[in-house]
Amino acid sequence: MNELKVDQYLDLKGVPCPLNFVKTKLMLEGMESGSILEVLLDDGEPITNVMASVKEEGHQILKVEKIFGYWKLIIKKT
């Protein structure tokens, strides 16, 4: 797979629910349609909750990857 060009980056390790989603949402709101956001999230509730919420907001998830104790999420803004 080609390396995706990431436009914005958010490290949300240690940020609890629902603040992690709020930060993700605010970041996405400030981005242009079609641009790419990379988010780092804790394992457990943060990854599953943020995933479901980002999907509900209609954005596209390009990649989900587990890296040791946390997750990397690549989101394309609709």
């Binding site: 599953t48 998830i61 999420l73």
Partner: peptide
């Protein structure tokens, strides 16, 4: 339905 809700690519 948790699997359905969490799946990033439906």
């Amino acid at each position: 339905g948790d699997c359905v809700r969490v799946c990033p690519v439906n």
